[in-house]
Design a protein around this nucleic acid. Structure first.
Lengths: 135, 135
DNA sequence: CTAATACCTGTAGCGACCACAGGTTCAAGG
DNA sequence: CCTTGAACCTGTGGTCGCTACAGGTATTAG
């Protein structure tokens, strides 16, 4: 039972151009081809693509996914490595949340100080002209 | 009292290449030039660059900054518009925080389920093979 | 006057795609 | 069997906000 790239796209929700892109950067294996050079996919390809999309949804960068796939492909004693990749990524996600929360706090403050009326000195603009201090 | 690009960079903490980039994309005005074609900056340029960097620290995209600068340059009745740009950006930041928190929750779950020992079926990998559901 | 440093322009790369253009193949209907 | 239109192919260029060269010119300190 085989799939065209369009069918694979429909089943996984992954853009066709993106599937070809994944092949180019070697996340997906080189697809089998029909006599007329169209890509043909099987169930293992579908599973692999779902895996990749799921990782991307969780924000794993492509290099991490490559590592994870290598471990998956390799088979055996990999659980600790998988966990470590995941933990590192989690730490990164937490850093980004922290950064964004700092931004949120400052922006909230700016909006609160500003009446929105047309007054000569806008407190938002005034504050933005003052040199940093976020970190 | 004028500054070379290197001095401006040192004073603002903004990379030299980035300053030239801002000029290219018209965030910064075309700089005055010395006889030997070196850029010369004045105090208004310094203030403008500080403003830009501050906005970037707060995550404003360049197009927003362009809007804000236009309002600043324009002068008068702009406070409501400034507030609206800021509020829109704040909403975007909050969306990103929400997304990242969802990721964090799932990743935390993955890490918790995995002992890190070398067992045949890694729970992280197993879960990643299952089709999404984040949204 | 020389040497070191600072500056100049222009181009290419990053990550993770998306969107063409211009050509080929496939599948269904007549 | 033939036509038509959809689906596919490759290759390239754009996105965003920088950063990093390469290869050349200007300035400045000694």
């Amino acid at each position: 039972m085989s799939l065209s790239i369009g069918q694979l796209s429909a089943e996984t929700g992954c853009n066709i151009e993106t599937i070809r892109y994944y092949e180019r950067i070697r996340l997906m294996n080189q697809a089998r081809r029909s006599s007329g050079n169209h890509r043909i996919y099987g169930e293992p390809d579908r599973r692999r693509l779902v895996f990749i999309r799921r990782c991307r949804e969780l924000g794993f960068p492509v290099d991490d996914i490559r590592d994870l796939l290598r471990l998956v492909d390799g088979g055996a004693p990999t659980c600790a490595e998988v966990k470590s990749v995941t933990e590192n990524h989690l730490a990164g996600v937490r850093r980004r949340i922290t950064d964004l929360r700092k931004m949120e706090t400052v922006l909230k403050g700016l909006v609160r100080e500003c009446s929105g009326e047309t007054i000569p000195d806008c407190p938002i603009i005034d504050t933005l002209f003052k040199q940093s201090s976020i970190r």
